[in-house]
């Protein structure tokens, strides 16, 4: 994040928006997510990311753009993707950053696979020790 903000610094750039996507510990059928494994068709993904940056500059007047995505294993709570834009004013920076992340998810050949840790089976309270007793 700090590096992204530094990349977005520049004279007159009063609006800086950085979106960071972190891996959530979602519940799954096999337990709880402990990491996501990302893969990409690299050559096409790099070209698509550059194209999105170009469009963000042209359409929203973003003077600086960051659009980064990690590949390989990303553990829960770590950042997997950053989309940021710097413009003269905040409205365009918000628009540009939203455009970048939404288009990245829809059009860039990157995929994730969930790796889950099995949930611990619920321990049943032993009958007759603590808790409610019958009768």
């Amino acid at each position: 994040m700090a590096q992204a903000v530094r990349e977005l610094e520049g004279p007159g750039l009063g609006g800086v928006v950085v979106f960071a996507g972190r891996v959530r510990p979602d519940r799954t059928r096999s337990g709880r997510v402990e990491r996501l494994d990302y893969e990409a068709h690299r050559a096409l993904a790099v070209a698509a990311l550059r194209e999105l940056e170009t469009i963000a500059r042209r359409r929203y007047g973003a003077e600086r753009v960051v659009l980064w995505h990690r590949l390989g294993a990303v553990p829960v709570d770590e950042v997997s993707v950053i989309a940021g834009a710097a413009t003269g004013h905040r409205a365009a920076a918000f628009d540009a950053a939203r455009y970048l992340i939404e288009q990245l998810k829809a059009t860039v050949p990157i995929w994730k696979g969930e790796r889950s840790r099995p949930s611990r089976p619920r321990r049943r309270r032993p009958v007759g020790r603590g808790g409610r007793s019958a009768g």
């Binding site: 096409l44 997997s80 998810k105 059009t107 990157i110 994730k112």
Partner: peptide
């Protein structure tokens, strides 16, 4: 020739 299932980055 590449097969691209629906994308899922982010």
């Amino acid at each position: 020739f590449a097969v691209h299932p629906p994308y899922g980055g982010g």
